[in-house]
Nucleic acid binder design. Sequence first.
DNA 1: GTCTATACCACGATAGAC
DNA 2: GTCTATCGTGGTATAGAC
Lengths: 188, 188
Amino acid sequence: MEPTTTVRDQILDHAITLMMLRGYNGFSYRDLSGLVGVKTSSIHYYFPSKDDLVLEAVNQYSSGILAALGSIDASLRADQKLSKYTKLFGRTLGEGDQICLCGMLAADIEALPDNVRAAVQAFFKANESWLAKMLAQGAKEGTLNVNGKPEHVARTLYAAYQGSVLASRLFRTKARLEEVETSWKLSK
Amino acid sequence: MEPTTTVRDQILDHAITLMMLRGYNGFSYRDLSGLVGVKTSSIHYYFPSKDDLVLEAVNQYSSGILAALGSIDASLRADQKLSKYTKLFGRTLGEGDQICLCGMLAADIEALPDNVRAAVQAFFKANESWLAKMLAQGAKEGTLNVNGKPEHVARTLYAAYQGSVLASRLFRTKARLEEVETSWKLSK
DNA sequence: GTCTATACCACGATAGAC
DNA sequence: GTCTATCGTGGTATAGAC
């Protein structure tokens, strides 16, 4: 028996993928119509406006990533957690042509309503707060290079990940993403 | 006597500003028409296609930034150079709503032709190579936190700047950009 | 070099039948 | 819930007069 997905979920999934590829202004209801196999008017039934669609896409994407973050074994060393985090970020790259949905929407943010901005901000903060805890642990263990307050360095580290996934796609190489990890790891 | 700017230069300048604000798909010939005061057909006279316009915009933007980079006093300490670099990046933020043109186009890269991708890559590499030299100097002086090979750390540092300018706009605070600097500076 | 006029297509969105 | 049909708008681009 074929695993069934609702039309609504298919729309949402394709919208996420397309936005990670081309951004908010780079995909259309027509694109989704072709991918899902329903007319654009049916998509408006589920998501009356494009802004509605984007907001729900961010929420779904965010839930998925944060759940994966939460399932990282808390008993690992900090440098091991950092490796897991890099892998997680690497997965968003897909075939090498996608970037983090929230990084992409941060680029498009001036065209988006406030509720989307708030959702993207929340995603950033959740990541930064997870990284801050990890850095604090790494500083204590002596496994990571933490030059400053953890919450402070965490924001820089997260920015480095967002920037690196952008550069990885630009140069078509995953290496740039992995370099972020090694720039924070201490080899004693 | 009024300082005169050619129509062509005005188009280019406004195109750069608009793209730093809303990206490649977020501005139109009509927008430029309103800002410069000529019809869209006149813009096509100077830049036959939008891709032509973008390519020239990148080249102009790149020249300006790299010239500013080149004019940073070579005799400064590395940590002082880093501060100058942060200021340079902060200037691109404008009223707080703009990001680096090449960072923005990196987000839109899948919709752009190869010659634009090459130009954006060249801009990234030029910045990274400047930062690598600065980091090498900082490691020798003991003024900067360089954990790894300079060329390697430089790519991470540049990614952190690109990511931070994105986050600065998202959260409407310049502080995030300035944090990058302090994450690499050593206070002895 | 700038204009008017226009072609042509893509877009988001809605009304209403089924 | 999905469709057909359509509306209005905005987009890039071109032809041709001035």
